[in-house]
Amino acid sequence: MRFEQPKTVNDAVSLLADADGLTRVLAGGTDVLVQLRLGMVEPDLVVDIKAIPGMRDITEENGGFTIGAAVSGAELGEHAKLVAAYPGVVEGMELVGSTQVQGRATLTGNLCNASPAADSVPAMIAADAIATIAGPDGPREVPVADIAIGPGKTSLKKGEIITSFHLPARPANASDAYLRFIPRTEMDIAVASAAVNLTLKEGKVVAAKIVLGAVAPTAVTVPAAADAIIGTALDDASLDAMAKACEAACNPITDKRGTIEFRTKTAGTLAKRAAKIAFARAGGKS
């Protein structure tokens, strides 16, 4: 195994594009190191992107935020303005692993590991986050929703790396929330999860995006669930309709972490609860 710590994006891209054999990009490393240790992967090249200037920065532009690919969960949580604007995105990331893992784990890694249960992904998708990708053919911008294409699989091409994410500026009275279900209070992988991003006007939902995690091969956006609450102040009937729509969108598996039945029911429950939190955060009164 070769270990490289390039100082520029171009060097990182060249290293990865020119490499023979298996490569891994190292940001926080909290998934890559586990895979190495358990012998699940034996990469020929590991490229640490943390020494590249800008990779660890969070910058505010026109009310939106650009988050460097190597920003850790802990750093995200310490950025007061980002937390205020996108509490759901931040809480999703902060649910990944322990305090120790938070010291290193990144949005990029969580996304590129492409686990269906990735905690930071549903809220990123719900927020319409855009990933900026550098590659041998130049940079491109891709919605976060289009990065993971199946368990362990991404749409990134050989030599491509994510360099940052952009979260758009928020209108007034907009917020988000993310909830996951785990058997313990910490340290588990989500059995089901839900992110809700919504905008209010005159006390009613005027825009919403609802994304579920751990209930399908990738995170699932559920437009029908959003439709069920748009135009409402989250009365019980619309929340029930939203939960039903969520359940209908689930396509989970039964495994050691949960059953199809449990994941489906819980996804609806979590969506309801997350919607109420996002609604309150956006200034809504129920």
Binding site: R184, T185, E186, M187, D188, D255
Partner: peptide, 16 residues
């Protein structure tokens, strides 16, 4: 054995 690690063999953590 499906859960051969502390991730899925879930012993209580402090916050539980």
């Amino acid at each position: 054995l499906q859960n051969d690690g502390f991730l899925d063999y879930r012993i209580p953590v402090a916050s539980d």
